[in-house]
Deep mutational scan, measured.
Amino acid sequence: MASDGVVVEIGKVTGSVGTTVEIPVYFRGVPSKGIANCDFVFRYDPNVLEIIGIDPGDIIVDPNPTKSFDTAIYPDRKIIVFLFAEDSGTGAYAITKDGVFAKIRATVKSSAPGYITFDEVGGFADNDLVEQKVSFIDGGVNVGNATPTKGATPTNTATPTK
């Protein structure tokens, strides 16, 4: 695992066909100046998982989280898009600690492993708008004895992609 920078880890949970599971997305290594904004994309298989919603985690402190935390689910493109932009203008609602960034709610549709993997990152910046190093650890849903650990090695991303 990367020793510096922010680590975004997609949790690994267990479920069975027809059940709804909650998959946490963790941030670790949050910089001392916090995270003022970030955007990134995960990939998944809508034939295996139906993403039914995404909720902000406990490290989102904006009293009205829909102003700073936004997501979009595109089953036709097989992606989930995340956007966080601190909304106070003063840094008061920045992410300042490690913990759960988001909770992905999904219904298991198939007995195949439900991988959720890193696809791309736009950027991560602290309260001074300084770009942060970030790496990703894939996860998803274990169905029966299947284990979604494909790509469990962190993917280092030093520069934003478009």
Score class of each variant (00 low, 15 high):
V130E: 07
A92S: 06
K67T: 14
K12A: 07
G29C: 02
K97E: 10
F118H: 03
I79W: 14
G5Q: 15
T117I: 14
I104Q: 03
A72Q: 00
L129T: 02
G15I: 10
V108Q: 14
Q132E: 02
G122W: 00
T19M: 04
D128L: 04
G151E: 10
A102H: 04
K78Q: 02
G18Q: 08
A106W: 07
A36E: 01
N37Q: 00
V30T: 06
A102G: 09
A106S: 12
S111A: 08
F42M: 03
S3Q: 14
G11Q: 05
T20K: 14
G144W: 08
I116K: 01
G91K: 15
P160K: 15
P75Q: 05
G151F: 13
G5T: 05
A94R: 08
S111M: 03
T66F: 11
G151T: 14
I54Q: 02
T14F: 12
D39S: 01
D98G: 06
L49R: 03
P75L: 03
G140K: 14
R77A: 06
S3M: 04
V61D: 04
I73V: 07
F136N: 14
S111D: 09
T155G: 09
V21M: 05
A158D: 08
R43K: 10
L49H: 13
D128N: 04
V6Q: 14
G151S: 11
T153R: 07
I23W: 15
V13C: 04
A92Q: 14
V100R: 11
T96P: 10
N145H: 13
E9S: 07
P24T: 03
I59E: 04
A112H: 11
A92E: 09
V17F: 15
Y44P: 02
A94H: 02
V134M: 02
G114A: 08
G15Q: 11
I10G: 05
P154I: 06
S135M: 03
E50D: 12
D39K: 01
D126G: 02
V13N: 07
V6M: 04
T117P: 04
V61T: 08
G140W: 06
Y44L: 03
V17L: 07
A146H: 08
E9C: 05
T66Y: 15
S111R: 10
T107F: 06
F136M: 07
V48C: 05
K133F: 08
V30H: 08
